[in-house]
Nucleic acid binder design. Structure first.
Lengths: 349, 349
DNA sequence: CTGAAAGCGCTTACAG
DNA sequence: CTGAAAGCGCTTACAG
């Protein structure tokens, strides 16, 4: 009825003090059951809602969690966000979304203390935070969770990118491949993501462990997304000696590679094997062999860690979790074709 | 330095009153340039940040915008969200993300006045709000924007789904198709999305306008996503008479259909044409003919409308915008194969 | 241009 | 179990 019912209205109509109204509504206990019921009913009828601002000022809490990520419309990030949201739902915490892209906006973002007094906890997604940023975050003295990296004192969840990538390569090696190419995103980007670095390291690890000398010619960089993968794969095809298998840093790059191969009439997996990473929803569509990780679960997990730290600040030790990965062998990988005479340099040219 | 610098500290060190500190920091003017500079410097050194809660309580504003959507990890929604975020960035408004799924949580959500006193504006994404929900939103008396629907008094941005779908069908009809199937998502879902209804209506419009009698046999429903499309297309193939073209309500469904056809050895577009809707990033990959819409731009747009209403509440008339769509003809559509004798019922059986 | 003071709407010791 | 009152940290008329 009333446009802006106040706590005093409720108190008056319920015949109690505002203190009692507050206690009844917050369920803080120590209020008679009958009184509580009456107050709640009046509040309901009036459509009274506690003012979050006032409540926050009085308690010092913000009941909000910030999710900070460099992208929000890329599959991985949207998935993480969805996981965090699920964890927060029903807890009473609001989810504040922040997008920080370039290094510049990040600097401003973290140093300006934008987060200060604004949230009770932070979830960072795949942000390779710099030293000063870590310091700024620590100064907030609130729980910080981070997906895809490990930082001392922060909660974290991540996969072992390096080992998982190595596993993918071993899968190829076990099949008999020796000339294995890698399509990875450019690590020299401003964001300093660790994924390209780690997955490439795993690639090298596995090769070396098998006594295979990595061939720099078989390494190509790609821009983000399917088109990037297609371009990179095409570049690979232009090289002086062709690989028998390709490891793409992400499924999206792998999809692009598949397209390039199809376009050039190269049979997968007969002529070339392809393995991706992530188990993107479309991976099954393409029957792509890949390394599966549970992205959404990671989002859920990190949010739970932060929430938990908020509830019981006692346990000072920030938990560091590792999410499992699993090689999913599908139809884009097989044994290399039996020592086919290299067609090129023989029949033509 | 200080863990929790207060405004009084700043005032003392700057040798002014807290009022002046407040005015200097908010840039509300009427403060000497020199004073402002000094105050700002002190605040900076102390690492002082205004408390949003206190500020909000004092001003009555929340400087926050809520984005409410039924999904957050689906392409369309993530894209909208990204657009909204871009619009909000740098404006000082926080972006609160809410996910309401089933009807039940929605009822609770809107009626409980969770939004009340919590945000200055709301963006609803593809939520076919019910009458009571509209009422609850109106009662908030804050600007409301809605993507994908039109509601009296609310700002909106949407595409003409019906007409755009009809355009896609006309494209097929112009090519010579008459037996055109439709794969649409089930409109009887709890969320009451209008998209399936509208796009199907456009499909029927175009058929009728061309004097083609719609064949219920050519209508199939699909679950969300690629797999849903694949299943639906397969179902279509099992029908008694085959279509020469298929219109999928979304590109994702179309991708699934493409896969089904490939799996059954049916050539696209030679044997069957396929047209999707959305121009999903992967549409180009599949060379899919589709109806393009600018999703991110719609998110940006609706946020701008809401922001604008916040700045100048004078203009009471909520703006209703229509985003343009465009048929992108690619390689999955062509003229139907020349009156091939229906193979089935002749050679076998 | 600047300051003293009231007030925003809650929560929470402190008494009872 | 309940109430009166202080206080959370700002902003903003109101005076000057």
């Amino acid at each position: 009825m009333v446009v802006k019912p106040t706590i005093d209205e409720v108190a008056r109509l319920a015949g109690v003090s505002t203190s009692t109204v507050s206690r009844s509504l917050s369920g803080a206990g120590r209020v008679g059951a009958e009184t509580t019921r009456r107050v709640r009913k009046v509040a309901q009828q009036l459509g009274y809602a506690v003012s979050p601002s006032a409540s926050r000022l009085a308690t010092g809490r913000t009941d909000s969690i910030a999710v900070v990520m460099p992208f929000i419309d890329r599959w991985f990030f949207a998935e993480i966000l969805a996981g965090v949201e699920v964890a927060l739902r029903g807890t009473g915490y609001d989810l504040l979304l922040y997008n920080v892209k370039d290094t510049e906006s990040r600097k401003e973002y973290f140093s300006s203390g934008l987060l200060r007094k604004r949230v009770d906890g932070v979830v960072l997604v795949t942000l390779a935070v710099t030293k000063p940023e870590v310091r700024a975050l620590r100064a907030l003295s609130i729980p910080v969770g981070i997906v895809g990296a490990r930082v001392n004192g922060f909660h974290s969840v991540l996969i072992n990118d390096r080992e998982a990538a190595a596993g993918a390569i071993r899968h190829l090696i076990n099949l008999g491949h020796e000339r294995i190419a890698i399509i990875s995103s450019d690590p020299d980007r401003e964001m300093h993501f660790t994924v390209p670095v780690e997955r490439r390291a795993g690639y090298l690890d596995a090769l070396r462990a098998a006594g295979i000398t990595p061939d720099p010619q078989l390494e190509v960089h790609a821009d983000y997304g399917v088109e990037g993968g297609e371009k990179a794969a095409t570049q690979l095809l232009g090289g002086s000696s062709l690989p028998t298998a390709v490891f793409a840093e992400s499924d999206e790059l792998a999809f692009g590679a598949l397209r390039a191969f199809r376009r050039f009439g190269i049979q997968v997996p007969e002529e070339i094997s392809v393995v991706g990473f992530d188990n993107h929803p479309m991976a099954e569509y393409f029957d792509l062999t890949t390394v599966a990780q549970q992205v959404r679960a990671q989002g859920l997990n990190i949010a739970c860690q932060v929430l938990d730290a908020l509830v019981s600040p006692a346990k000072r030790g920030a938990s560091q979790l590792e999410a499992v990965t699993e090689l999913v062998a599908r139809a884009t990988t097989s044994v290399p074709r039996p020592k086919a005479r290299p067609r090129r340099g023989k029949d033509h040219k």
